[in-house]
C-alpha cells in the first residue's frame, strides 16, 4: 500500500534530511491491515539512518513527537492500533521549543 511519510521539527535529520518519503509498505505477514505499530518498526528499519532513540522509545515514538494520520492526531484514531489505508499521509513531527 502506498503511503506518504513526512518528518518535521528536526526528525528529518534522522533520515538523511529528507522530509517527504513516498513509500510502499505491506501489512505484516498474516495480517489484513497495516497498523501504525507495524509502520513504526518499518520506518525504524528502513528510513531512520541514525540515532533511532531520537525517534522511538519502546515500540512507540519518543516523548515530544506528534504523530498525525491525515492531519489528525493519532491519539484520536487509536495510536499504535490505528489502521492505515492506501494513500494515507502520516506525519512525524518533533515539538519545537525555540523562540
Amino acid at each position: 500500500m502506498k503511503l506518504t511519510l513526512e518528518f518535521g521539527g528536526g526528525l528529518e535529520l534522522l533520515c538523511d534530511s529528507v522530509k517527504i518519503h513516498h513509500v510502499s509498505v505491506e501489512p505484516q505477514d498474516g495480517e489484513q491491515k497495516l497498523t501504525m505499530k507495524h509502520l513504526l518498526s518499518w520506518v525504524r528499519t528502513n528510513l531512520i539512518k541514525e540515532r533511532p532513540e531520537m525517534f522511538m522509545k519502546g515500540d512507540s515514538v519518543r516523548p515530544g513527537v506528534l504523530v498525525l494520520v491525515n492531519d489528525c492526531d493519532w491519539e484520536l484514531s487509536g495510536q499504535l492500533d490505528t489502521s492505515l489505508e492506501d494513500k494515507d499521509v502520516v506525519v512525524f513531527i518533533s515539538t519545537l521549543h525555540g523562540g
Partner: peptide, 9 residues
Amino acid sequence: FPTPPPTTA
C-alpha cells in the same frame, strides 16, 4: 506532552 522530551532532542 505528558512526558518531557529527552534533553538531546
